[in-house]
Design a protein around this nucleic acid. Structure first.
Length: 703
DNA sequence: TTTGCACGGGTTTTT
DNA sequence: CCCGTGCAAA
């Protein structure tokens, strides 16, 4: 037997060696999905002699692509960088750098790639001062356009309907003028070319004999099209995914692509991977129970031969503060038991939940990292210095110019910039070029000319220095570093220094003149989202469940399990997706799983009373509710919470303003207001003040 | 052109 | 509560 398939279970092996024809692998959480993907590629190369560049593997994240490459390189004698293992977006970027002329829109292959921020800025400019677009919110419109490009559908009201075509046309026109593509265009234009240019289509169809798609359940409509266009000739399409882990529908991901795959390829085979190698039986049991509440799924049941077994602990807390302390105590306990901080993750539905833990961990000296917030490449200082580099490489890049012409302050304000832009558009030249002809007062003119000289002289300096020296030289000559020093922006200084080390790490990938090297470096950066995080230090990890997808931790805390928060009440018709998010959360745990809820959560500056999440009940956890810090009484309280609340919904809803009620913690209070969605404002005696309380909540009773 | 204040709104977000 | 935004004044 080939080395490659040794050590795989029977199903995994089948998924690796069934190389011909369309194949779908339904891979449950922790069932060895990446193993199958990497071994399949290694099998194709080593055992079948397939040439690596005839294989295409697409993932959703850079991280996943990198991991796949690392693992394949251990299995085959071949430079994995020569293979097509990439994200959807980087595949398309690579494709378009070669083929974009086929679009016949006037784009050139050195197009720039915009991030969401850039897109929003462009939209702001488009709608600025135009009465007919008064109600357009830039972020919202950006979202609408993005969804439209990805799904082909529009979900908009009449106001937008009347204006969308024009706004969309203007946006696309502006992008074209800037020789710029947004993330979605990368895929959209790739599909356009493949659909309209038969010779290009045939070339790539023949080239990619084997195509593999990871996380298939998260593909959207346009990605679905792309895959099928590419696989149209050889039809050796391998998709792997788990419908129960589809948690990106808000970005246009469509689970029904799984069904569409089955009907588009009637000769498809299906392999289910149900043996889980990650978690314990209690964890899998809870996950399995939970997910059966979702309708319309293909039945799947994870099992394990893992003999280690520790019950899941559900702890219901009075307050979010108590929840923070409870988790802290459990972490300390875990450390005493010989675990490392690296083994531990705290997962939550939304980012605000991290705050309470952060405050406590600072006081208690627990090392932690919070993931999320602004990614490295979307920080202002990073975008600024990248814009300088971009402008030096391409002095006609107006977007970069606009960003940094007054950063540090050069007393060139919005009014001047606008004049410059009008001048540039009128003469069909770049804004930098427009500096020589624009009509402004002599003081302003001098400032503009100085800026132009600065950029052009930096472009000259590029030739005499090593790249690293040049970037540092640029930091100084532009005054950017000086500005940060004066403002005592230590963290930002560290960040732009960090960019230097990012370049150093990558520098061996590039060759050619400094200008070419810099240009390639900038192109790569556009599709980069996360800076390398320091895995070296021992820290507790805090992140949203979305960020935890694909990861595993020995000990997992899922916190904030309250009705209204998780499941979120923002989008109640998407309860199934909320449940899948919970499924993803609990299946991250290898050995120990702790779930917590707080009946009184301090959030957004005020207290809210919330019932425990229905998911607790659905996982069957009420019975094994272990109370470890307080008395047994609480067990009954939390049990009661369900029955009382359910009844309360039907019967106990009739409160009136002015009525007196008794609250378990705050004592007697007066109802001062009754809002929609069952929330009442109740005034209690000092120091409690006015609190928001849910009608019929078990913590209150009538007087 | 910059700054200061009042206001509103605040899931998730791989690229 | 804490942030980003938008407008008015310096």
């Amino acid at each position: 037997m080939s080395d490659i398939i040794k050590g795989l279970n029977e199903r995994q092996r089948e998924a690796v060696v069934t190389t011909e024809g369309p194949l779908m692998v339904m891979a449950g959480a922790g069932s060895g999905k990446t193993r199958v993907l990497t071994h399949r590629i290694a099998y194709l190369i080593n055992d079948l002699g397939v040439y690596p560049s005839n294989i295409l593997a697409v993932t959703f994240t850079n991280k996943a692509a990198k991991e796949m490459k690392d693992r394949i390189s251990k299995l085959v004698n071949f430079n994995v960088n020569a293979m097509w293992i990439s994200t959807f977006h980087s595949f398309c970027a690579r494709f378009l750098r070669k083929e974009i002329f086929a679009l016949k829109k006037g784009y050139t292959s050195n197009f720039i790639i915009l991030d969401t921020d850039d897109s929003v800025k462009i939209i702001k400019d488009i709608i600025k001062d135009k009465a007919e677009f008064e109600r357009v919110k830039p972020k919202e419109l950006q979202g609408i356009i993005s969804k439209f490009k990805n799904t082909g559908n529009l979900y908009i009201d009449d106001y937008y309907k009347r204006r969308f075509d024009e706004l969309y046309a203007r946006y696309q026109e502006e992008l074209k003028r800037l020789n710029a593509l947004d993330f979605d265009d990368l895929i959209l234009y790739t599909v356009n070319i493949l659909e309209n240019d038969l010779s290009v289509l045939e070339y790539y169809q023949q080239k990619f004999q084997y195509i593999l798609v990871d996380e298939y359940q998260d593909t959207n409509n346009i990605q679905f099209k792309l895959i099928n266009l590419l696989a149209g000739f050889h039809r050796n399409l391998f998709i792997v995914g788990d419908e129960d882990q589809s948690i990106y529908s808000f970005r246009g991901a469509e689970i029904k692509n799984i069904r569409k795959f089955m009907s588009l390829y009637p000769d498809h085979k299906i392999i289910k991977l149900e043996q889980n190698y990650r978690s314990t039986k209690p964890i899998l049991d809870a996950a399995n129970k939970l997910i059966t509440f979702n309708a319309e799924r293909i039945a799947k049941n994870l099992f394990t031969e893992n003999s280690f077994s520790k019950d899941i602990v559900y702890h219901s807390c009075e307050t979010s503060y108590e929840e923070n302390r409870y988790v802290l105590n459990k972490i300390k306990e875990a450390l005493r038991n010989g675990n490392s901080l690296d083994d531990i993750a705290i997962l939550y539905r939304n980012n605000v939940m991290s705050r309470g833990f952060e405050d406590l961990f600072v006081v208690e000296n627990i090392p932690y990292t919070i993931y999320g917030g602004l990614s490295f490449y979307s920080r202002k200082e990073i975008k600024d210095v990248i814009s300088y580099l971009r402008l030096i490489v391409d002095p006609n890049c107006d977007l970069a110019l606009k960003r940094i012409i007054n950063e540090p302050k050069r007393s060139i304000g919005a009014t001047t910039l606008e004049k410059l832009e009008i001048e540039a558009k009128a003469n069909n030249i770049s804004m930098l070029e427009a500096i020589s002809t624009v009509n402004v007062n002599s003081g302003t003119k001098a400032k503009l000319e100085d800026f132009k000289k600065l950029i052009l002289s930096l472009r000259e300096d590029l030739n005499g220095l090593s790249m690293v020296d040049f970037i540092e030289h640029m930091y100084n000559k532009t005054g950017y570093m000086q500005m940060l020093i004066e403002q005592k922006e230590e963290e930002r200084i560290d960040n732009i220094k960090e960019l230097l080390s990012v370049f150093k790490e990558q520098s061996d990938l590039y060759s050619g003149s400094n200008l070419e090297v810099l240009s390639e470096f900038l192109n790569d950066l556009a599709l980069r989202t996360d800076a390398d995080d320091d895995n070296s230090l021992e820290k507790v990890r805090l992140m949203t469940i979305h960020q935890a997808k694909g990861l595993e931790f020995k000990i997992v805390f899922v916190v904030g399990l309250e009705q209204g928060i998780f499941p979120s009440d923002r989008d109640l018709d998407n309860l199934d997706e909320e449940r899948r998010i919970c499924y993803v959360a609990v299946t991250r745990a290898m050995r120990e799983l702790y779930l917590t809820s707080a009946s009184n959560r301090f959030i957004y500056g005020h207290s809210e009373f919330l019932a425990p999440s229905q998911f607790i009940r659905e996982m069957g956890l009420i019975k094994i509710n272990k109370i470890e810090t307080k008395s047994e009484v609480k067990k009954y309280e939390s049990k009661e919470a369900y029955t009382t609340i359910d009844k309360a919904k039907v019967t106990n809803d009739d409160y009136a303003i002015g009525e007196h009620i008794i609250h378990k913690i705050y004592g007697e209070g007066v109802i001062v207001n009754i809002g929609d969605n069952k929330i009442m404002d109740v005034a209690f005696a000092s120091p409690h003040g006015v609190k928001k309380i849910l009608k019929g909540h078990p913590s209150i009773s009538k007087k």
